[in-house]
Structure formats: structure tokens, C-alpha cells
Design a protein around this nucleic acid. Structure first.
Length: 771
DNA sequence: GAATGCATGGTTTTT
DNA sequence: CCATGCATTC
């Protein structure tokens, strides 16, 4: 074995092992050969990873640039880097390669532009298409092969294509494996989709994983270089990797074989994204000399929470049997609460949070509300909006997914890659500069572009500046003028881009495209959207320090790989976190609410439908619930609604079968409808329900679980209509209305300067001025 | 070719 | 309920 892998020479690396238990220490110091760590939730897996990297660098003298660490999100990578920095001191980990599979793939392609162009036919200025771009492309592909996007769902095509790519099947190979007529349709669409993608000089997310492998196939010496380089490879969240990711990792690790993977099969929740749980279950078969280490001691949660999680996950059949343990205190009972509908659910959660903040000195940051579908976030967000509790929504409509943001980004992308057809269509459809141009015009210019072997945008420029090209697309009249105008604008912007900073470029773009002027200053919503556009300017300005030629590509790369969870700590700091169960993986909070724990939602209806033909999706739903439970450190609340608004109609809901696994003795439950002991199906409606209004959430205040950290609960002040009050932020006001809400009050106050506000009595720092 | 109004159908999760 | 897409109108 190589010299770099020698055992530590100097003795004093105890600080790197300090505070770790025996299993964790083994995981940190077992540095040779393949290692599989099966780590339960809260068992200190991030600590193990960071300490191991620090140990490799400091104790084993492995140069940081020879370590590759793959994480699930960029945020995880960033945090880990910080923690390593703290262990080793600044700069000691300089050169460490750490990021997601996708960012690693993108980086690899960017770093080998010559080979990529030569062997894969992709030019260095390629763009990465996001979900919406891919959808647009799939739709176009369906139309191009003579099918109707209304009958052949683009979404479904995309997921089939993605599945094919996850198995490294190219269109030709997929065609060879066609079995049904539907497969044949997919094959045709896939082929066309891929053709359009390459014509736009674009790659999709799956390509970021698949193309590096193809590149290695085409250029074995490149693979050898990477194999030689990475002495140690670490992979986090290994249970959520797919086939391509496995192939990539196995290829890179083939030489030195120091592959360290960490995961928890019980937290595998990305099967729908082709994550292949076999990667972790079969690790030892793939690497027979692998050492396996189990981390089962939970440091995160109370005993009640850990045991509840264990009981829930035990019901799954497809798993390695093991038992979660903890030495933590019992903690409080888990509260299960049924509410009459989704609005009551939301306000109940909000009010409970308000009370906990008020009575137990907790901060809004300590709370998370989790749900299965993003649609659920709306009502919950609404409830918080009507309160003074700060909150933030993770997921949902992301900043970079907003239409107005994508519009401006489309111009930037087009400047970077003039072949980008999705972005060009976007600009034409949404910006004033596109007026007078339709599909007809684009088609005429495209035929010119294809004939001349030029990117689409050049056709527009040829019309604007006939001297630059031998001929021009065949257009006339107003269409020609409109196309020429767009062409001339882009010619100008392109030269601007070479010398201006991104924020200066931004100013020109919104001015010259007429985009800024298209926002109606009288229209409040339009102004809000314009404010978002200006926010994008701030974002761009962060790259102004880079030289003009470099800033744009760097920025675009960063944007296409960023996710909402990545910006979780950057954007609007503080507040209650509203988050999907999927996004919550890897996070932890003192107090967790899981909302909508109902049949059809968790488990989701699609998993129920196929329960008997394929039980895997249902088991994945259960794992999702398990992930949610195990995010909680101290307090766990689970809610469900009796009726729920679905597509604008109220539907009766049945509490989730998963609740049957929870021990009644350890929970605080009122509803008789909740599934009882294990074994009982628990999903058949057992209680008679009337119109849906017959059931009311208990109005009587119940015994509260004892405080987390127990300061005495101050009595909430009592307010009267007409009282004059003072608020530190809103100033002086008069109480208009007082309404009781369970054990608290809500007051409507008319402030002199800030208008009417609704405040929670116990929360708002109101001072009574006269009585 | 663009603005307005109606019908339709869609919600699982995300790098 | 909502957003999107299409048809109708000018």
C-alpha cells in the first residue's frame, strides 16, 4: 500500500478522537480499504465524517486535494468544510474536494473542456438545464415526434428518461430493450429529447453523472489520473445514491480502494429518483473485504422519541434488523392531535408554538413544521403570516424558479451559450424585446442556423448585421425588423459582457430589453416581482469582484446547482422552519411538528394504490415518517385533520396507519379515531362521522407536557377593547377587538403609524398605556 | 400577433 | 382551488 496511508506517526492526535465513542473512533481510524458505516439517526455520523477527514489530513498526512468527499447537498458540504476548518485551523483543508455528485460531475466536465468537446461533442460553454427547462424540452420533443403533450405527459416521459439515464442507457440502448408500446413511445421521445438537448448545447442533471462515466470510457487515461489522485473517497447518505453514482464512485475508488461510505437504509427516501437501496445493502458483496461498523447509539432525541421511531420502522420488511438505542432521558410524551380541518391544524400548530415560545423561553428557530407535500405548506404559512412569529419556508417556489428571475437569467444564459433554445424562447415570450416574434419566425431562423451550422442566436444577429454573415435568414417586413432588433441587442450585450461587471450588465439588460418598464408601478404584485428581480441584482453583485469573463460562467454554474436547502441559513435567517419531510433529512430541531399524518398523504395515495402489487413505495413512505420523527430532539407533535381541502373540495381524511405503531402509553392522544394497537389495520374508517363538523377539536386546554427548560409560565395579560397600548415596533395603538383562542387571546390593534395588526396576546410585547 | 376569457386537469417527494 | 393552455376576438 502507499506511503500516505501509513498509520499516524506522531502520537498526539487525541483531540481528533476526543468525545467520540468506541464505534465512532473505529470509524475514524479505520483508514485502509473499504468501510461501510451503517449509522442510525442522531448517531453522530457527521462528526465521524468530519473527524475522519481531519484525521486523514493531520494524522495520516494525506494531502487534502487527494481526498474526495461527496455529500447529498451543498449545504452539508459547506458545513462539513467549516467543521473541519475548526478542527484543523484555517487553510489546513485547502484543496479538499467536497460537494454533491452533481457538482463533482459538473466540475469534472468543466475541467476537461477539450476532451468533452472532442469525445462527447459538448462545447465548454454548455448550460445545465433545470427541471423546468427539461420539462420544456420534453414537451418540445413530444411535439417533434408527432405526439400530443396532452396525451403523453411530459412529466412522465421525463421521469422515464431520467430512469433510463440512471441505468446508463443511451437512447439506442433503451430502444433495444423496448418491450411495450409505451416503451416505444418513451424511446422515441428520449431520442428526440437528447437531440434537442445537444442542439442547445445543454446537459441535464442526469448527464452530470452519466457523462463523466462516458468520458472515462472514451479516455481511460483520464480515469487513471483521477483514480491515482483520490487516495480516499468518502460518501455520505449512501442509501440515497443510484446506480450511476455507484458506478462513478466504484470507478474512482478502483485503484486505492479506500472507499468509506456512510448511510442508513432506513432513511432511504429517494427511490423515486432511482436511488437504489441495493447500493448499501450489497456493499459487502461488491467489496468483500469491507469492514462494517454500526453506529446505533442516538445522541439526539429523548428516549420516547427514539423508541417511537424504532417501533415505526420495525414494521418494514425490507430492512436490516437492528435496534436504535439511546441513553438520553425519557422526555415528554409524543402529542398526537386530530383537528377538524387543515386550517385548524395550521392554527393549532402555530398557537402551540406561540405558547411554547412564550412559556418556555424557546426561540422560533427551535421549531420545524414538516409535511409530505409542498401544497400543505400554503395553509400553514398563512397561519404564520397572521401572527407575529417569524417563519421561513424551505422548498416550494424557490427563488431561482420564480418566473421573473428565470426571465433575466435566460438573457444571461443566452449570452453565455447562444445555442440555448429554451432560454431564447423564454426571452421572446416574456420580454418586450420579443414582441412581434412567434414560432414562425423562430422556425425560419432555425433552418438558417442548422444550414449554416451556427447557434440559433446568430441567426438574429445576422439579420441585425448583414455584413457579419454571408447571408441571412429568410424573413421580411415587421418580423424581420423585430428579429433584427433582438439580434442587435444581443450583439451589444455580448460585447458589454466582456467588460462590464454582472451588476452593470444586469442594469443594461433590464433596461434594453424593456423588461423593467414592463412592471406596472401602480400594481402592487408587479412591484413585488420587480423587488425579486432587484434581489437577483444583489445576488449578481457578489460576483463583481471576479474578472468580467469569469463572473458569468461561475455565477451560472452556481445557480444551476444550488438548491433551496442550500440557502437555508443564508436567506431570511431565523424563524420557524416550514419544510417537506424530504428536505428535512439531515436536519434536527428541538421541537418538531409533523402535519397531515393521514392516509393518502402519509402514506401518499399513490403508494397505497400499488400497495399489493409493489409494497416498496409504501415502505418508503414509512421511512419518510421515520425520518420526520427522528428529526426531533425534545418534543414531537403529530397532527392530522378530519377533513381536508383537496382540489378545492373537502374530503374526509383517515388518520395514518403509521400511527398504529406508536405506543399509546407513551403518547398524549385524545382522538378515538386514531388507529389502535399494532396488528389492527387502523385504516378502515371505524368511527361514525357526520358532516365533518360533528367532530370538534377539544376546546378544553389539556395538560401540557412539562417544560423543556422550565421557566415559570407567566400569566398572559388580559386586554380589553378600547385600551391604548404601546408596541416597541409599531408604536402607539388602540385595541379594536379581542378574541379568545384556547388558552390565549388574539387582539386586533389599530396602530397610529402602521395600521391594523393582529397579534397574539401572550407573544406580542404590548404594554398597556391606560386602564 | 396580442389581449381577454373559459376549460381543463393536476399535487409526491428534488439533485 | 389554481395555473396553464387554448380559443375567441380584435
Amino acid at each position: 500500500m502507499t506511503q500516505q496511508m501509513a498509520t499516524p506517526l506522531t502520537a498526539d492526535h487525541t483531540h481528533l478522537l476526543h468525545g467520540l465513542n468506541a464505534d465512532q473512533q473505529t470509524a475514524v481510524t479505520t483508514i485502509e480499504g473499504p468501510v461501510l458505516v451503517v449509522a442510525g439517526p442522531g448517531s453522530g455520523k457527521t462528526r465521524v465524517l468530519t473527524h475522519r477527514i481531519a484525521y486523514l489530513i493531520e494524522a495520516c498526512q494525506v494531502p487534502p486535494e487527494r481526498i474526495l468527499a461527496v455529500t447529498f447537498t451543498n449545504k452539508a458540504a459547506r458545513e462539513m468544510r467549516e467543521r473541519i476548518g475548526r478542527l484543523l485551523g484555517d487553510g489546513a483543508a485547502e484543496g479538499l474536494v467536497m460537494g454533491t455528485f452533481h457538482s463533482f460531475g459538473a466540475r469534472l466536465l468543466r475541467q476537461n473542456p477539450g476532451l468533452v468537446a472532442d469525445r462527447l461533442g459538448i462545447l465548454p460553454n454548455f448550460v445545465i438545464y433545470d427541471d423546468a427547462d427539461q420539462l420544456a424540452m420534453a414537451k418540445q420533443a413530444i411535439i417533434n415526434v408527432g405526439l400530443d403533450p396532452k396525451q403523453v405527459a411530459p412529466r412522465r416521459m421525463l421521469s422515464r428518461i431520467s430512469a433510463a439515464k440512471a441505468l446508463l442507457l443511451e437512447p439506442a440502448e433503451f430502444e433495444a430493450s423496448v418491450e411495450t408500446y409505451d416503451d416505444e413511445v418513451v424511446a422515441r421521445v428520449y431520442r428526440e429529447y437528447q437531440r434537442l438537448l445537444r442542439r442547445s448545447n445543454a446537459v441535464d442533471f442526469d448527464d452530470l453523472l452519466g457523462l463523466p462515466i462516458r468520458l472515462f470510457d472514451e479516455a481511460p487515461s483520464l480515469l487513471e489520473r483521477y483514480q491515482e489522485r483520490f487516495l480516499h473517497i468518502l460518501v455520505d447518505e449512501y442509501q440515497d445514491t443510484n446506480r450511476v453514482q455507484y458506478v462513478l464512485v466504484a470507478a474512482l475508488a478502483a485503484k486505492h480502494r479506500n472507499l468509506f461510505v456512510v448511510g442508513d437504509p432506513d432513511q432511504s427516501i429517494y427511490g423515486w429518483r432511482q436511488a437504489d437501496i441495493r447500493n448499501i445493502l450489497d456493499f459487502e458483496r461488491e467489496f468483500p473485504d469491507a469492514k462494517r461498523i454500526h453506529l446505533e447509539l442516538n445522541y439526539r432525541s429523548t428516549r420516547r422519541i427514539v423508541e417511537a421511531a424504532d417501533l415505526v420502522i420495525r414494521e418494514n420488511t425490507q430492512r436490516i434488523d437492528r435496534r436504535l438505542r439511546t441513553e438520553n432521558e425519557d422526555g415528554e410524551p409524543i402529542v398526537i392531535q386530530e383537528l377538524s380541518d387543515q386550517n385548524h391544524e395550521a392554527t393549532w400548530i402555530r398557537d402551540r408554538i406561540a405558547r411554547l415560545i412564550q412559556q418556555h423561553g424557546l426561540s422560533p428557530d427551535d421549531f420545524a413544521v414538516m409535511y409530505r407535500t409542498t401544497a400543505q405548506s400554503r395553509v400553514i404559512e398563512q397561519a404564520f403570516r397572521n401572527s407575529s412569529i417569524p417563519y421561513r419556508v424551505v422548498g416550494g417556489v424557490r427563488f431561482y424558479d420564480r418566473k421573473e428571475i428565470k426571465d433575466v437569467l435566460a438573457v444571461l444564459r443566452l449570452l453565455h451559450n447562444p445555442a440555448d433554445e429554451v432560454s431564447l424562447s423564454r426571452v421572446i415570450e416574456n420580454m418586450p424585446i420579443g414582441r412581434g416574434l412567434g414560432p414562425k419566425a423562430i422556425e425560419a431562423i432555425r433552418s438558417w442556423a442548422v444550414l449554416n451550422g451556427r447557434p440559433l442566436l446568430d441567426g438574429f444577429i445576422a439579420l441585425a448585421d448583414p455584413s457579419a454573415f454571408a447571408d441571412a435568414p429568410d424573413l421580411s417586413g415587421s418580423t424581420k425588423a423585430a428579429a433584427a432588433k433582438l439580434g442587435s441587442l444581443f450583439a451589444t450585450l455580448r460585447s458589454d459582457a466582456e467588460r462590464l461587471t454582472l451588476s452593470e450588465l444586469f442594469d443594461r439588460i433590464v433596461d434594453r430589453t424593456g423588461y423593467e418598464a414592463s412592471f406596472d408601478r401602480e400594481d402592487e404584485e408587479a412591484m413585488e416581482r420587480w423587488a425579486n428581480v432587484l434581489e437577483l441584482r444583489n445576488d449578481l453583485a457578489e460576483y463583481d469582484v471576479l474578472p468580467p469573463g469569469e463572473a458569468l460562467p461561475t455565477y451560472l454554474e452556481q445557480v444551476s446547482l444550488i438548491t433551496d436547502i442550500d440557502s437555508l441559513d443564508k436567506a431570511n435567517q431565523g424563524g420557524v422552519t416550514l419544510i417537506t419531510l424530504h428536505s428535512a433529512k439531515g436536519l434536527e430541531f428541538p421541537v418538531v411538528f409533523i402535519a397531515g399524518v393521514e392516509e393518502g398523504l402519509l402514506p401518499i395515495s399513490r403508494a397505497i394504490e400499488m400497495e399489493f402489487s409493489d409494497p416498496m413505495p409504501l415502505e418508503e413512505e414509512r421511512r419518510l415518517f421515520y425520518v420526520g420523527i427522528t428529526r426531533a430532539q425534545k418534543l414531537l407533535f403529530i397532527t392530522c385533520a378530519t377533513t381536508r381541502l383537496v382540489y378545492g373540495q373537502y374530503q374526509t381524511s383517515v388518520p395514518s396507519r403509521f400511527l398504529a405503531s406508536l405506543p399509546r402509553a407513551e403518547t398524549n392522544t385524545r382522538s378515538a379515531r386514531l388507529p389502535r394497537a399494532r396488528g389492527s389495520t387502523g385504516l378502515i374508517e371505524r368511527t361514525r362521522r357526520g358532516s365533518g363538523t360533528s367532530w370538534q377539536s377539544p376546546a378544553i386546554p389539556r395538560e401540557e407536557p412539562a417544560p423543556v427548560a422550565a421557566p415559570k409560565p407567566p400569566t398572559p395579560p388580559s386586554y380589553r377593547v378600547g385600551q391604548r397600548v404601546f408596541h416597541p415596533k409599531f408604536g402607539e395603538g388602540v385595541i379594536l377587538e379581542v378574541s379568545d383562542r384556547r388558552d390565549d387571546q388574539e387582539v386586533a390593534v389599530m396602530f397610529k403609524r402602521h395600521g391594523q395588526k393582529r397579534l397574539i396576546a401572550s407573544l406580542a410585547p404590548l404594554e398597556v398605556l391606560d386602564d
